[in-house]
Design a protein around this nucleic acid. Sequence first.
DNA 1: CATGAATGAGGTTTCATTCAT
DNA 2: CATGAATGAAACCTCATTCAT
Lengths: 207, 207, 207, 207
Amino acid sequence: MARPRGTDASGTTTRTRILAAAMRQIAERGYGGMRLADVAVDAGVSLGLVQHYFGTRTGLLQAAFETGTEVNLRRAREIAHGPGTPSERLTGLIRWGCADIDAADGSWEFWFEFWLAALREPELSLRNRAGDQGWQGAFRTVLSDGIADGSFAPDGTPEQVATKLVTLLDGTMLRRMLGSQGADDDLDWAVAQFVRPAVMSLPPRGD
Amino acid sequence: MARPRGTDASGTTTRTRILAAAMRQIAERGYGGMRLADVAVDAGVSLGLVQHYFGTRTGLLQAAFETGTEVNLRRAREIAHGPGTPSERLTGLIRWGCADIDAADGSWEFWFEFWLAALREPELSLRNRAGDQGWQGAFRTVLSDGIADGSFAPDGTPEQVATKLVTLLDGTMLRRMLGSQGADDDLDWAVAQFVRPAVMSLPPRGD
Amino acid sequence: MARPRGTDASGTTTRTRILAAAMRQIAERGYGGMRLADVAVDAGVSLGLVQHYFGTRTGLLQAAFETGTEVNLRRAREIAHGPGTPSERLTGLIRWGCADIDAADGSWEFWFEFWLAALREPELSLRNRAGDQGWQGAFRTVLSDGIADGSFAPDGTPEQVATKLVTLLDGTMLRRMLGSQGADDDLDWAVAQFVRPAVMSLPPRGD
Amino acid sequence: MARPRGTDASGTTTRTRILAAAMRQIAERGYGGMRLADVAVDAGVSLGLVQHYFGTRTGLLQAAFETGTEVNLRRAREIAHGPGTPSERLTGLIRWGCADIDAADGSWEFWFEFWLAALREPELSLRNRAGDQGWQGAFRTVLSDGIADGSFAPDGTPEQVATKLVTLLDGTMLRRMLGSQGADDDLDWAVAQFVRPAVMSLPPRGD
DNA sequence: CATGAATGAGGTTTCATTCAT
DNA sequence: CATGAATGAAACCTCATTCAT
């Protein structure tokens, strides 16, 4: 009983393997630096097959961002609406955001490249905006829950505090990525400020 | 009375004009996307001349970053050590940082590209680190002055608060650049938190 | 009551549908520009099936020309040996030749491409020559009949006049195709000159 | 005393050499079959230089047609307004038109390809129409002169007869190119018909 | 100092073709 | 009979670079 074509032994479709390879390559070489030949080698397929599935280089880039955004948002919503106390879920969101930076797979660089590209291509910009609102929504959900059950008592509406947290998270990521020291402590401290009296232990920076 | 060669009517050297064009092109097309031919057109000179002055593409990129960093840091130090109360000078630094984002000349995109490139090319990374410390030093100077004369009473050493401020500024810039709303208010609010009891009016966005 | 495989509801074989699509594509994109994938889409079948029936691209092109030539010649002979006076049959041949040009289906472009291709590929050239002689033969048949019954009194043998008529028809087609005005009148006039005292009304252009 | 760059020993510009090579290649392989690499080899330059001068493949094709049309029309006007009796000049025009076909350099195939391409690309169509009118104008000029001095006495206005002659010339060319026999005689005969009582000896077909 | 002709390396794109299902 | 995944050859295109003028 042979498996269908376009699928490998682990059940992953070839298309998905190419997409994953593209995301790695974008992270590694940048949006403009990604080469189709590298993607093909990374995915273990021929160059022609990459084009068979995605047509043009641009098509592949868009598909990669589309998929990336989807996966990212789904995960954010899963955490926000998942089990655990609001405090645990808030920590979960931040931990996951920070994990991206520390991961060796270059996820963070991928998003950076995405943002830069979105500055230049309006089509990507819309998708980007949607992703941003999704994250903010996830924070808002958790904050509302926390206020409702009395575990959070922030200075402002969930909306306002969610914005502050995302800003802080972005700044932390940016600085961490750039190699500056002390960024983690700031995040720790600032979250405590914003979401009194929540006491959270942030994930220690992995290396 | 002829003017020296390599200098135009306004006294700007040709070299400087090329450098400025390169920075615009980096901001517009990205580090990897900058093309020598475009720089030449933008600077109003021939392609050959660009190479005559800077040798290779890499040489031009390095020169651009070098010049950019220098100018940037000089200005930060001028503000930090300049006239005015510590509070005025702190506001000046932030205002200037934010001004970069709003400017239509793409300064901010230029730095973004710089940072991304620094991730991949160690040589640039050093220069980047130096620039970062320069900014942090500027904040530290102002904060120390403010604590000394009693106008600031932050929770922590000038060093720590400077880090927090730079993080916050970076996060704000990142989010502003990405088009998110509400980032300005956060900066306003957060500065007040960090540097009690300073009351500062941040520059309104837009121009 | 199942119909045989390779046949659609209207009784057209799949092979024929592909062939028709190929002829449309040759007319539209040219001999060198015809793409198998386009033919497949046009015919509403998969790429693989096109190759299943015709093997290679060259095979499809040859089959298309073969079929085109056959159909064309059969029709010319039908008209030449059909009912009606010699004058009516002559008009019929010309009308049909001109109809090709005005048809929106690109028949004429198809033949043009055929001729050009025949210049470069000797194999096609033979088939082309055969087609040409077929047309000329059709004219010759009609002219002979007309001379026999006294309705034509040309300056020369049927052979010579047939050549002149085909030349004129080709020239008219060429110029009509290229969008020049006045070509129809020429044909009208010249036919009258060649085939005195036949008076013929040519088909008005357009439909 | 070195010669300027971009010029060869005979004073021909490199650009012109590439253009001539392109016209040869179009004639040989067709509009769609022309390959930049072949053009480069034929012109004796690198592939890159072809693109340096003409940008894209399309740019080269357009430049080739533009130049071809210009040269062609200039020559037609030179003959039409040149020295000699109207009869000599008319013969000259036809001789030159036919010479194109017989020339081994493929001029005629070039124009054929041009016309086919013009069917598909509206931009070329305009240029094509202009060329056609130029030829017709040349014939008209000669015919008018011949009528004025009494050497021609055609059935119709110079305009009408010019159209007929161009049609006949095109048809003859088309059939000659396709290898049919007897086309020359037709032209000879038909010209005599149209332009009575001109007696002209057409150029014998070269091989 | 200044120009642009000329090159070639390296990428993307297009397609016919093969073949497993 | 029918499909489309997978490949690879061959084209086009972009650009940094060299160098004669």
